[in-house]
């Protein structure tokens, strides 16, 4: 009987990620485990994952300015957000789904949860998109720049404009959900989600303005690369019996 390929992935770099419990972000206090996770060598279950096989998408899903399907464009500053999904070795991660969600230009989400923030909804914007990386790991969205919005975490708390990113990657262990912020944003200093990340790694969450991405007379360009855990080069194909 043949044996599957069990790749060896480098460890999660805990020193580059937020802690589970970060009291400045109050909701983490009761929603964080108290035991350290139990370290176990990944098996085929964890070195495989849904990324390669899952989900049908269409090119329209990557255009958040029109994917509400109303025939009218969303209101706001039109932006291109593009970059590469890479592994730690710098190799592009091809054919993986990138899912995004965000507030509209006024800082309002299309969500049933009550909000006390009296910002208008935009009937031409749903704030959700997805695309698949190409053979080199590139992704690209057309959207509008999200607005800031207040929340109740601390006095006069405002979430800086951000786009939520979800990536499955090639294996279970590469699963990543993160948030992309914008270079130069004045609200980052007081945001506990951004500040939950160790200082040396915070800039990895910040998209850079890129004039080469900007399209003349159309949209401003931002570049945001995403790095997932990668195989450590020690690929093992178990012996055939």
């Amino acid at each position: 009987m043949s044996e599957p390929i069990v790749r060896h992935y480098g460890p999660k770099a805990y020193s580059d990620h937020p802690p589970f419990k970060y009291p400045d972000y109050k909701s983490t206090i009761k929603r964080s485990p108290t035991h350290d996770p139990i370290k176990v060598v990944a098996t085929l279950t964890e070195t495989t994952g849904p990324g390669p096989a899952w989900a049908e998408i269409t090119p329209e899903d990557a255009d958040l300015t029109t994917n509400a399907g109303t025939g009218s464009p969303a209101i706001g500053e039109r932006i291109i957000v593009t970059g590469r999904v890479l592994d730690e070795n710098g190799n592009g991660v091809p054919d993986t789904i990138v899912e995004v969600w965000q507030a509209n230009a006024c800082g309002r989400y299309v969500h049933w949860r009550e909000t006390a923030f009296p910002a208008p909804l935009d009937p031409n914007f749903i704030g959700v998109g997805q695309c698949k990386t190409d053979a080199e790991g590139n992704y690209r969205f057309l959207t509008i720049k999200p607005g800031a919005y207040p929340w109740g975490n601390h006095p006069n708390a405002w979430r800086p404009p951000h786009i939520h990113f979800s990536i499955l990657g090639p294996a279970l262990v590469t699963r990543l959900v993160t948030q992309m912020y914008f270079e130069g944003d004045p609200l980052l200093f007081q945001d506990p989600m951004y500040n939950s990340v160790p200082p040396h790694a915070r800039e990895r969450l910040v998209a850079r303005y890129d004039h080469d991405v900007t399209e003349e007379n159309w949209a401003l360009g931002w570049r945001f690369d995403i790095v997932l855990r990668g195989p450590n080069g020690n690929v093992e194909e178990m012996e055939e019996e």
């Binding site: 480098g10 999660k12 770099a13 580059d16 990620h17 937020p18 972000y25 890479l86 592994d87 730690e88 070795n89 710098g90 899912e99 995004v100 969600w101 989400y109 299309v110 969500h111 949860r113 749903i126 704030g127 959700v128 939520h164 979800s166 990543l176 959900v177 993160t178 948030q179 989600m193 939950s196 990340v197 160790p198 790694a201 915070r202 990895r204 969450l205 690369d225 995403i226 790095v227 997932l228 855990r229 990668g230």
Partner: peptide
């Protein structure tokens, strides 16, 4: 090796996406 992109919460509005 490149540095891993830090994790962030899905937040309260994730169900609009999935």
């Amino acid at each position: 090796r490149l540095g891993q992109t830090p994790s962030q919460t899905v937040g309260p509005y994730v169900s609009m996406a999935f």
